[in-house]
Amino acid sequence: MDKLLRNKRTILCFLLPGVVIYTVSVIIPIIWSAYYSLVDWNGYGEITYVGINNFKRLMGDTEFWDSVVHTLIYAIGQIVLQIGGGLLLAVLLTNIVVLRKPLQVMYYLPVIISTVALCQMFKKMFGVVPAGLVNQILSNFNPKWGHIEWLTNVKSSLAMVTAVAGYKNMPVYMLIFYSAFLTVPNSLVEAAKIDGANSFQIFTKIKIPHIRPTIFANLLLVLNGSLRGFDIAKLLTAGGPINSSQLQAMYMYKQAFSSQKYGYGSTVAMFIVTESLILAILIRWISSSRKLGGR
């Protein structure tokens, strides 16, 4: 048996196909991207090596930095909505006695509806001409409110994108935190009750600290997901109006595929990869030092 498990040919048969597919379409393209970030290329003509010039240009590119700021705002919104909202929903779920299971199933619906379908729904609900659901309801209270431009207004476009993205993913974290709350030992909660703690204190002093590692791990996931935010902004507002809801991944896409600047687009891509890696290291570090320092 041991010999069989050491057999090189068997190992290769099992390991190689997966490793090759993964390497060819995930790892190698990233290395390639790193190379492209140092060149100037429109996709068919000559490839000109420009060194770090693309990065220098990036530093002074205001449209790019605007998109980074938008991404930051978007990310903060995702943390509030997905982690904060997810926690609140998880608490709600633990308190529901009747029909808990079917409600849990229903609350999860936005996650499984495709982004395209969801964005089409929201575009109709927040439509202006003809008036969508929201404006129709609002106009019953005040006729002026029937013409609010939710998605096509510089002031609200990014907020709408952030809200819809948070809405779509909130139930995932509801479920994760709900399962995490179930791992809190009942004896701890009972002991706190005997000591006279109310449910709010039990929540903040016992349950939250107990699931802190889960919260940190998911904070990382949400932040990481926010850096790559694209679909909803693209589908809901197309980054507009006047780039007011353009996220960094969209700017990369625009540079590469609309302007055919594959080199410069890759430079933006490398910026995003660097951000992700720094973030991963940072959060790892914070969560491990927290663990060492105790509560």
């Binding site: 379409s25 990233i30 991207s33 590469a256 687009g265 891509a269 490398m270």
Partner: peptide, 10 residues
């Protein structure tokens, strides 16, 4: 950890 848009160009 890798944002999948990054591989779009290559």
């Amino acid at each position: 950890m890798i944002p999948y848009q990054v591989i779009l160009i290559p």
